[in-house]
């Protein structure tokens, strides 16, 4: 479980986050959604410590993440996996070396154990046999899957995904969403996903936080989205006339 308490963030004179308090539950896919520039990425980076909040605190279970010393911070971060928007795979390393990097850096496993763990993670993301390939030889979707494999290699308790579907076709997006969801449930991970993808919202949104102009505008789950009366949320999710017609049809309204 991760809890944000009254997080604010100011860049110069611009206040990007205006006192956000949210609870992200374990074993569920927690989605942060919102328009471009709403503050989603800053919120995600504040939760993970890549951006220092101006005020407020972030709790990882019972640990106040915002007040940690260097060593304690490292200990918490070893329980964190993150999938970056651009995958952030190390270009000069092979897929296997990328996934093995956290194992090399933080564990005392022998070479055979590391190889087994890498193979397991690759199998988990359906990329068995891609060990020797370089990131440049992989498609965008495959790179994301390698990113997920690297994020889960140390058995994280917390998983962060920044725009996991960006740049992917709808079918591949569904594969990535399902993969993240199944890993979350299997390992009871607290997963936080920052997304624009409406498919993700409707398919894997166990908890959804809608951020609007730096504030938590709406909170609920995928089944509550349709019936929400929040105008900002409705105009964000059902932005196109086509989606509005689908919504109205689903709710039995005249189309």
């Amino acid at each position: 479980m991760i809890r944000a308490e009254n997080i604010t963030k100011t860049f110069g004179e611009q206040q990007v986050l205006k006192g956000i308090s949210i609870l992200f539950e374990a074993g569920k896919t927690n989605l942060i959604i919102g328009r471009s520039g709403a503050g989603k990425t800053v919120l995600l980076k504040s939760l993970i410590g890549l951006v220092q909040p101006t005020s407020g605190s972030v709790w990882y279970d019972d640990v106040n993440f915002t007040n940690l010393g260097k060593e304690e911070l490292r200990a918490v971060r070893m329980k964190v996996g993150m999938l970056f928007q651009g995958s952030a795979l190390f270009d000069s390393l092979t897929v296997e070396q990328n996934i093995r990097f956290p194992l090399d850096m933080f564990t005392n496993l022998n070479a055979k154990e590391k190889s087994e763990r890498v193979d397991y993670c690759l199998e988990r993301v359906s990329l068995t046999g891609a060990n020797k390939k370089f990131p440049s030889e992989l498609s965008g979707g495959m790179q994301k899957r390698v990113g997920i494999a690297r994020a889960i290699v140390l058995n994280p308790k917390y998983l962060f995904c920044d725009e996991p579907n960006s740049g992917l076709d709808p079918k591949t997006s569904i594969v990535i969403d399902e993969l993240i969801r199944s890993i979350t449930i299997e390992n009871n991970i607290t997963t936080i996903i920052n997304t624009h993808d409406m498919n993700s919202v409707m398919e894997i949104g166990d908890n959804i936080c809608f951020i609007h102009q730096g504030k938590l505008e709406w909170k609920g789950n995928k089944s509550e989205v349709l019936e929400s009366t929040n105008q900002e949320l409705q105009s964000f999710i059902f932005a196109s006339p086509f989606l509005q017609r689908l919504r109205d049809r689903a709710l039995g309204r005249p189309v």
Binding site: L50, R74, A75, M78, V80, A88, M105, F106
Partner: peptide, 14 residues
């Protein structure tokens, strides 16, 4: 720029 440093930071690497 490619977020490699952020990726390492999140892993806990100094």
């Amino acid at each position: 720029q490619k977020e490699h440093i952020d990726a390492m930071e999140v892993m806990g690497v100094n």
